[in-house]
Amino acid sequence: MDNTIESAEDKLSIANRKLLFQNEEKEKRAAELSIANKELIFQNEEKEKRAAELSIANKELIFQNEEKEKRAAELIIANTELAFQNDEKEKRAAELIIANTELAFQNEEKEKRAAELIIANKELAFQNEEKEKRAAELIIANKELAFQNEEKEKRAAELIIANKELAFQNEEKEKRAADLIIANKELLAFAYISSHDLQEPLRKIQTVVTIILENENKNLSEKGKYNFQRMQLAAGRMQQLIDDLLAFSRINTTDHQFEKTDLNLIIEEVKNELRDTMQEKHASIEVTEICPANIIPFQFRQLMYNLISNALKFSNPDIPAHIIVTAAL
């Protein structure tokens, strides 16, 4: 029996301790509730403060609400105004759309024009370049010309010197020419005088030959007669030469003076001069439509003489020559 007492003692000790512990816990809990109470008292106080504050805040909100209603009324008025303004703006917008369309069209036109101008600009730019090239070329050409000009001036200066030289030479030549003209005139005068003087003795020789042939014919041998004929032919030839020489010297010594001359007179004189030959050739001269002309009479007469005498000389001997002289201007 000891164990059962001991166990009961133990069981009471344990229940004692448990109760002690529970007591202690309940005391702790009471303390905590006291603290919580205090806290709740504090919280209540706080909530009362807060309610007072909320009441104030409420009053404030009521005021604010009133203010907001006033503001709303104002906003309605403002809205109406804005609606009107909106209408106006829509009208304006419609106008602007039209104006815009117009501007868009103008814009297109301007773009086209701009495109054209761009092309034109390019063209001008190209032309400008070309002109610049040309200008550059011209500058080069100008330099070349300036150079050539200088060369030419040099050449001109040389030519002036050469010209002076030539002028001098020319003067000398003119002097020489004048001398030659004088010498020539003297020679022609000499030719004229000498040939004129030569005619006389020649004519005498010819006359004497004919006298001998006529009067002494029977005393001459055939050989002698033949030789006399040869002498006559030679004398005749010489006479022709002298006549030609005279005619030539006359052409150059006569003054070359133009005169209004009746060509009929000239031809008449030539006909008289050629009468012998014309009769021999049974020739006739027909003069038609002859007018006065401004001529050097001597030279023109010589010309007509030469033409007509040549015509007679080379005419067909079997046909009577017929020479026609006409004039035309």
Binding site: Q206, T207, T210, I211, E214, G236, Q239
Partner: peptide
Amino acid sequence: RKPSAFAQF
């Protein structure tokens, strides 16, 4: 114009 042949003269 004196001719050169005497007969003509």
